[in-house]
Amino acid sequence: MNSEKSAAFTYFIADLHLAQNRPDITACFLSFLQNDAVAADALYILGDLFEYWIGDDDNSPFVLAIAQGLKALSQSGVPIYFIHGNRDFLLGKGFAQQAGMTLLPEIDVIDLYGQSVVIMHGDTLCTRDTAYQDFRKKSRSWWWQAMVKNLPLFIRRKIAENYRKKSAEATSMKSQEIMDVTESEVIKSLTEHHCSLMIHGHTHRPNIHYVNLSDREGKRIVLGDWYEQGSWLKFDRSGFQLLNRDLSQGPSK
Rank of each mutant, 00 (worst) to 15 (best):
S116F: 01
G85S: 10
T130D: 04
F135K: 14
V148L: 15
Q115C: 13
A160F: 11
G85N: 07
I159E: 02
D88M: 15
T130L: 07
S139M: 15
R157Q: 09
F95L: 10
P152G: 04
K138I: 13
R157N: 04
K174I: 01
S139H: 13
Y132Q: 12
R156L: 08
R87F: 06
G77R: 04
F135A: 05
F135E: 08
Q98E: 11
Y81S: 10
K174T: 05
M101S: 03
K165C: 06
D88S: 13
L153R: 00
W143D: 03
M173H: 12
T127P: 06
M173G: 04
T124V: 10
I80Q: 02
E161K: 13
Q115D: 15
R164T: 01
I83M: 00
W144K: 01
R128E: 14
T171L: 11
L91F: 14
T127I: 08
F135L: 15
P79R: 09
G85Q: 06
R157G: 03
L112W: 07
Q115T: 15
N162I: 13
K137M: 03
V148E: 00
G94Y: 06
P79I: 07
K93Y: 13
D129H: 10
K166E: 12
S167P: 05
I119K: 02
N86F: 14
Q97K: 10
W142G: 03
Q115W: 03
M147N: 13
Y81M: 03
N86R: 14
G77Y: 03
F135D: 11
L103P: 01
S139I: 15
A99H: 06
G114L: 05
I110A: 12
K137I: 06
I110S: 07
A170H: 11
L112V: 14
F154Y: 09
V109Q: 10
K166T: 06
A160R: 05
M173D: 05
V117W: 04
K149H: 07
G94N: 13
W144F: 11
V117P: 12
S141H: 13
A96P: 05
S172V: 00
H84F: 02
N162P: 01
V148M: 15
N150R: 15
I119A: 08
G77S: 03
I159Y: 06
G77L: 05
G92F: 07
Q133W: 00
I119R: 02
F154R: 00
T102Q: 11
F154H: 13
G100H: 09
I159R: 12
T127V: 14
T171W: 01
W144Q: 02
I80M: 02
V117G: 13
